[in-house]
């Protein structure tokens, strides 16, 4: 027994020796930059010289000079960005979940060529986001784009639309590209959940002659709900920090400027590291709040997602 416990102790010691390099790297490349960004949010740091700055309290967030208020909390452009981000996230994640469910149900059927269809569905996921944004940029081109051509040939449009430039359509274009790119991810996760379902309750339902649509809503959906809820969290986390698609597809469009785009613009383009970091900090808070609210309202159990 004494031998076993000394063995356990030496195992624990070596476990920590294995863990420390990984933890040290994570602390340096994630923990430290996060804390520094929080701190910069309370300073007047500028990108041209990051070594000299002074602490200015909450002035980046809210300050009053000569009776006029300044700061992020009353900046309409910031709140527009928050609204854009939430709108984009809710619509695109909902669409991706619904479409992903349809694709997963199709792939869960037995039919000839299923492997090929699954491979085809994976293609958008394999394409880098920047490349897919550029591809759609071209397809949605106002003069030479194939989408306008298709819609006009089908008689849906009478004149071409500047999809990515017009204030009315830019957000729809961004959502379209995001849905195209990430529905496969959703479909694969839902498919994995579907394939873990027990076959016997379907057998019973078939014998009882229950309509397949009813079986889906009464049996399948409740059983895969935990996995879907977890998949939605992962997608939502991605959607709430969206940057690449928008930077390439609809640059400098206030209708599609999200929190990440806004914060980077302040930080890099305007060199306002203090103000930009304040925006980053607020972005972190908004995302954390959204995810916590989702977990509480949806009663998601993270540990129940899988098996």
């Amino acid at each position: 027994m004494a031998h076993a416990s000394s063995l356990t102790r030496s195992r624990r010691r070596s476990a920590w020796i294995f863990l420390i390099p990984m933890l040290a790297i994570l602390a340096v490349v994630a923990g430290w930059p996060l804390l520094r960004t929080f701190y910069f949010g309370f300073t007047d740091a500028n990108l041209s010289d990051l070594s000299s700055y002074s602490f200015i309290g909450i002035e980046n967030f809210y300050a009053v000079y000569d009776g006029e208020a300044y700061g992020l909390l009353i900046d309409p452009e910031w709140w527009q960005a928050v609204w854009n981000t939430l709108f984009f996230s809710v619509i695109s994640v909902s669409l991706e979940t619904a479409l992903g469910m349809v694709v997963a149900l199709v792939l869960n059927q037995n039919f000839r060529g299923r492997g090929l269809v699954r491979a085809a569905v994976l293609i958008p996921w394999a394409i880098p986001t920047i490349v897919s944004a550029r591809m759609w940029n071209w397809m949605l081109h106002d003069q030479f784009g194939i989408i306008n051509d298709m819609l006009m040939k089908l008689g849906i449009l009478s004149a071409p639309i500047a999809w990515t430039a017009s204030p009315d359509w830019a957000m729809s274009a961004v959502i379209l590209v995001d849905v195209w790119k990430t529905t496969p991810f959703m479909a694969l996760l839902i498919l994995a959940a579907l394939q873990m379902l027990p076959g016997d309750c379907y057998e019973a339902a078939r014998v009882d002659g229950i309509h397949p649509v009813r079986v889906f809503f009464k049996v399948t959906l409740p059983l895969i709900k935990p996995a879907v809820m977890v998949a939605v969290i992962f997608r939502a986390l991605d959607a709430l920090r969206v940057f690449d698609v928008i930077y390439v597809l609809t640059p400098n469009n206030p209708q599609t400027t999200t929190m990440s785009v806004y914060a980077r613009q302040q930080l890099v383009d305007f060199q306002e590291v203090g103000y930009g970091s304040a925006a980053s900090t607020l972005l972190f808070v908004v995302i954390a709040f959204c995810i916590m609210a989702y977990i509480m309202i949806g009663r998601v159990r993270l540990d129940e997602g899988g098996h």
């Binding site: 430290w32 910069f40 590291v273």
Partner: peptide
């Protein structure tokens, strides 16, 4: 460790730049 993978990249941008 899992929560680190959820960090938005922009939230570490200025700290990472300095680093």
């Amino acid at each position: 460790i899992l929560s680190v993978s959820m960090f938005p990249q922009v939230a570490v941008l200025s700290g990472m730049f300095e680093l």
